[in-house]
């Protein structure tokens, strides 16, 4: 979908499809964030309108539960408001910054929910059915962002699997290792190498 390329979290650099000057492009988002940092609530409303589907989609994928997802997404936007004075456009795009917040909050929520839930599930922890969790709706299948899709296809199956469990599943690398039945060091390396390859293929610069 066309909107996607403009929503690219990657600094536009060599991505000619994306026009950073667009009303919803990276420059516009950064500007809205900076205006919000000055207390401009209407700029923040505009920012919300341009990014809420992206933020909510990520939160929902990690948290899963619709009601909790809404709560988390609300916390995310409030936090973005609170912290937008700290946004530094030199360190990455506004959208990447916002999604970083969204991801962290989502992960914190699922981990704490797990910790406070009854421990019955713990018995089966080592046997969580990985295919049930993510293969059926693998990120690759759902990606319509062609560029990212292509980048992901350069990862090995093993790297992609580990990254999906960690990033979209919200599991710790220790859990990822257990779920995949590999040593912790292997899981760690797959996640890192996968990200490095993704970074290089996407031409991320910060």
């Amino acid at each position: 979908m066309e909107r996607m390329s403009r929503f690219s979290a990657v600094p536009s650099g060599d991505d000619t499809r994306s026009s950073p000057e667009d009303a919803s492009g990276p420059v516009a988002l950064a500007r809205l964030l900076q205006q919000s940092a000055g207390g401009d609530e209407s700029a923040f409303a505009e920012l919300y309108d341009l990014t809420s589907a992206r933020v909510f989609g990520l939160v929902r994928r990690v948290v899963r539960d619709p009601a909790q997802s809404e709560e988390v997404a609300q916390e995310v936007f409030i936090d973005i408001w609170r912290h937008c004075t700290r946004f530094d456009a030199d360190k990455g795009s506004a959208l990447a910054w916002m999604l970083t917040i969204a991801h962290r909050k989502s992960v914190d929520r699922v981990r704490s929910a797990e910790a406070s839930r009854g421990r019955d599930e713990t018995y089966g922890h080592a046997n969580i059915d990985v295919s049930h969790d993510s293969t059926s709706e693998s990120v690759v299948q759902r990606l319509d962002a062609e560029r990212v899709h292509e980048a992901l296809s350069t990862l090995t199956e093993a790297q992609r699997g580990a990254l999906e469990l960690a990033y979209l599943g919200g599991y710790t690398h220790t859990e990822v290792a257990t779920m995949l039945g590999v040593p912790l060091g292997t899981a760690k390396t797959r996640i890192r190498d996968g990200l490095i390859r993704l970074r290089e293929t996407l031409g991320v610069t910060t």
Binding site: M4, F7, A9, V10, R54, G57, L58, R61, G92, S93, L95, A96, L99, T100, H103, V139, L143, A145, V148, A151, L152, L163, E164, Y167, L168, L195, I196, L198, R199, L202, V204, T206
Partner: peptide, 8 residues
């Protein structure tokens, strides 16, 4: 920055 691309 690369990681957030996983959410596209």
């Amino acid at each position: 920055v690369a990681a957030v691309e996983l959410s596209s």
